[in-house]
């Protein structure tokens, strides 16, 4: 465990020493950002809209006390999604999608000797292959989380009004009550940390794959499970530290 962590740190250090030219790094990062970001928009949208909708309906179901105003539902949907559900669930979804593709991609490059081919050319393979992926993730996760926040609040609105559990007015009043801008900052900090964990762990798993196609599959699975566990631990740690 400790030696794994040590080699992970060395891996990250190797990535930022002797990097490739900035123009190369920039182009690679944009390519990866498109792969990570644009291709994940649909799944993130679907998941977050439904999470918002379900949250709204369930809170409404539990709030039967007539003394509590209906607008509380909107308030609670906002708090839950912005603080916890949007960053965490989005990152877990991305761990499945982005993490497995990073680990699978690098693992395949390793077992087919493409990484060795880069090394023989005198190219720092971690800085060429891994750094752009991590930078792209750091860039795209927060954007996707912002999208998820908006869509889950919208999902809650639609669910609340369409099922008739509350009026549009109540919902809007609710989501505008006691708004704390720091919560958004906190959520974005979470998104950045999760991005680093998912991309770093998946790249590490993929990069050091040995063996054949079977091991590439195992590396992908390992990347996803390890990323998700890391996300949940970091989620707790950040909440304890920063709230």
């Amino acid at each position: 465990m400790l030696t794994t962590f040590g080699s992970f740190v060395l891996f990250l250090r190797g990535m930022v020493t002797r990097t490739e030219r900035l123009s190369v790094l920039w182009n690679r990062t944009i390519d990866e950002a498109i792969l990570i970001g644009v291709d994940s928009i649909v799944i993130v949208s679907i998941v977050s809209a439904f999470i918002g909708a379900v949250t709204c309906v369930q809170i409404a179901y539990n709030l039967t006390n007539p003394l509590i105003p209906q607008s509380t539902i909107g308030y609670m949907v906002r708090e839950m999604t912005i603080l916890e559900l949007a960053p965490t669930i989005t990152s877990i979804v991305l761990a499945g999608k982005v993490g497995s593709s990073i680990a699978g991609g690098l693992g395949t490059m390793r077992i087919t000797e493409q990484i060795s081919a880069l090394e023989v050319m005198g190219i720092n393979s971690t800085s060429y292959l891994v750094l752009p992926r991590i930078l792209a993730a750091l860039l795209m996760f927060p954007m996707l989380v912002i999208l998820a926040m908006l869509l889950s609040i919208l999902g809650g609105y639609l669910a609340g009004t369409l099922t008739g559990v509350m009026t549009a007015q109540d919902y809007i009043e609710g989501i505008r009550t006691d708004f704390i801008p720091y919560n958004i900052v906190f959520a974005l900090i979470k998104a950045v940390v999760f991005a680093f964990l998912v991309s770093g762990i998946s790249a590490f798993k993929g990069y050091f794959t040995t063996g054949g196609a079977l091991e590439v599959g195992a590396a992908s699975t390992g990347a996803v499970t390890n990323s998700i566990i890391a996300i949940l631990i970091a989620d707790f740690a950040l909440a304890a530290l920063l709230l």
Partner: peptide, 23 residues
Amino acid sequence: KIDIRQEIRRKIGMLFQGSALFD
């Protein structure tokens, strides 16, 4: 030193057992 190794590496061409083309 890394610089010297790098200098030599740039003069090396290699054909891998499985070709190792970037797919």
